[in-house]
């Protein structure tokens, strides 16, 4: 219930309706959206029981390692009820046509694949918030100073997922494990998205806000 309460408010992209749908405008909308979502994500992380007790350096490393997976999992969760549509924000939905017009078809297809995976598993809200917190604690441990404390937090969250699923889905004893097995695909997809933004940054055609750039540089 603490994780459910920590969930950020709905987010709106408010894209400029006067601008034509081009790849640069679409990427600008997504970068601006991601920048604001990063602020919300940092605030969200602080509400995860135990996160704020970690050292500041470890809090930073965890967020730097996992932010794209966290944002992507949010998009996936918002998109679950819709077929063929990615809900980046309440007012910014990308379908196949829009993805082609905006030059985002590759990202659209791999993210849709992820949505399909979670839809097949019928990921519910409680599982989503727990999985998202687990993703935060599952960043590269090589960069972590106090591995034991991060491990303790991760164990706590993994126990929460197992407890929840064994109560709610008694007929599916492997459900929690199946959810954890989706994490490699989430990481792989997040890497593709990060690469896409790195390329866009190198081309210099899309303006990016400072926090987004800072987090992108950490990857």
């Amino acid at each position: 219930s603490q994780l459910l309460m920590a969930e950020p408010e709905k987010i709106y992209a408010t894209p400029d309706p006067g601008l034509p749908e081009t790849d640069i405008n679409a990427l600008s909308t997504l970068c601006e959206l991601a920048d604001r979502e990063l602020v919300l994500t940092i605030g969200w992380a602080k509400h995860i029981p135990g996160f704020s007790s970690l050292s500041l350096a470890d809090q930073m490393s965890l967020l730097q390692g996992s932010w794209m997976e966290i944002l992507l999992l949010g998009v996936v969760h918002r998109s679950l009820p819709f077929q063929g549509e990615l809900v980046y924000a309440e007012d910014y939905v990308v379908d196949e046509l829009r993805s082609r017009v905006c030059g985002l078809r590759d990202l659209y297809l791999c993210t849709l694949h992820l949505v399909h995976r979670y839809r097949t598993l019928r990921l519910d809200k409680e599982e989503y918030v727990t999985l998202k917190a687990l993703v935060l604690t599952n960043a590269d441990l090589l960069r972590i100073e106090d591995v034991q404390s991060v491990q303790r937090l991760q164990d706590l969250l993994q126990d929460a997922l197992h407890d929840y699923d064994s109560n709610q889905y008694r007929e599916e004893p492997r459900r929690a494990g199946q959810l954890l097995l989706t994490l490699p695909l989430l990481r792989q997809t997040a890497s593709k998205v990060v690469l896409h933004f790195h390329r866009a940054r190198a081309q210099g055609t899309v303006s990016m806000h400072k926090l987004f750039l800072e987090m992108l540089e950490a990857k």
Binding site: V39, I42, L56, M60, L63, Q64, K210, L211, E214
Partner: peptide, 15 residues
């Protein structure tokens, strides 16, 4: 941490 000023600041302070 110097390179990641905004993240550092947002974690240290309230939002």
């Amino acid at each position: 941490q110097e390179k990641h000023r905004i993240l550092h600041k947002l974690l240290q302070n309230g939002n």
